[in-house]
């Protein structure tokens, strides 16, 4: 019976949430009455700007970003985020599982990973720019690092928390060690690992934008950096809103996919985590 209501829950849009967005726009609109457009553009002008800059932004060509618009910049940024989240999740999850099982490896890796996770991105970014250049690689690797740290912690904790009775039971039923990994360890930790991926994904958009701000040729972050130099507040708002919308949509899609993959778990209910 709980299953049906959950199915409906996935597609339901919370009216309170819509009211929250509406309220924010109202406050924004009210503030524009008090502030000059150079500090705070009106919501309608920002929407118009998104429309104008979507395919090709004229202003950007004045600052050396020829033939680009919000759409293809966003695609560039989104591609980097997807590659980074996929790669970082894979590396972090495998490392987390290995360290949960082998205590010597854990003793070596734990301090290193924990230290890496605490380095501010602003400190790390210049090194990556020197080592990997201003192409895609640098920004992607920067995000990979933080995603991997988050997934390392989530996967390790999930494997630690998995009740050993499942493994013992599987062995008494005739499972091989390989089957234990594929049939017990991985599915048994999926809800927590997917939860970790969702958190990492949410953070990855911001990290990718910062990485692009600090040094890149393309991307939404690059646009923001260029427009910030020209104090084009309206353009920055337009770029930020596109980035924010894509991040929200990607989180919603991730939630949908995860609810399906971990349908067996109570934690898979939307809004349940």
């Amino acid at each position: 019976m709980g299953r049906k209501s959950r199915r409906r829950g996935i597609l339901r849009i919370d009216p309170v949430g819509i009211f929250g967005v509406f309220l924010l726009i109202m406050i924004w609109q009210a503030l524009t009455l008090a502030l000059p457009p150079s500090s705070l553009p009106t919501p309608s002008s920002v929407v118009a700007r998104i429309g104008r800059d979507f395919i090709r932004a004229e202003e950007l060509s004045f600052y050396g970003l020829a033939d680009t618009g919000l759409l293809n910049s966003m695609i560039y940024t989104a591609t980097n985020v997807m590659i980074a989240v996929a790669l970082g999740s894979l590396v972090g999850t495998i490392a987390g599982f290995v360290t949960a099982r082998f205590h010597n490896v854990r003793a070596i890796l734990d301090p290193i990973v924990m230290t890496m996770g605490t380095i501010p991105i602003l400190v790390l970014a210049p090194f990556f720019l020197i080592w990997f250049g201003v192409e895609r690689m640098s920004a992607v690797l920067l995000v990979v690092l933080y995603v991997a740290v988050i997934l390392y912690i989530f996967a390790q904790r999930a494997a630690d928390n998995l009740d050993p009775v499942y493994e013992e039971y599987a062995y008494t039923l005739g499972a091989s060690s390989k089957r234990i990994v594929w049939d017990i360890l991985i599915p048994g930790t999926v809800p927590q690992v997917l939860g970790g991926i969702r958190i990492a994904l949410a953070g990855a958009w911001g990290l990718e934008a910062i990485a692009e701000l600090l040094g890149a040729q393309y991307g939404i972050g690059k646009i923001i950096q260029v427009l910030a130099g020209a104090t084009d507040v309206q353009g920055i708002f337009a770029a930020l809103i596109v980035l924010g919308l894509v991040a929200v949509i990607s989180d919603g899609l991730a939630a949908l996919v995860f609810a399906h993959v971990a349908a067996w778990s109570a934690a898979a209910r939307p809004g349940g985590n």
Partner: peptide, 21 residues
Amino acid sequence: TRPSPERGMVFQKDSVFPWMR
């Protein structure tokens, strides 16, 4: 010396795999 499907076990705790139907 090791587990075998010839010796089945029902545990005190719930050991049914929650991720399988």
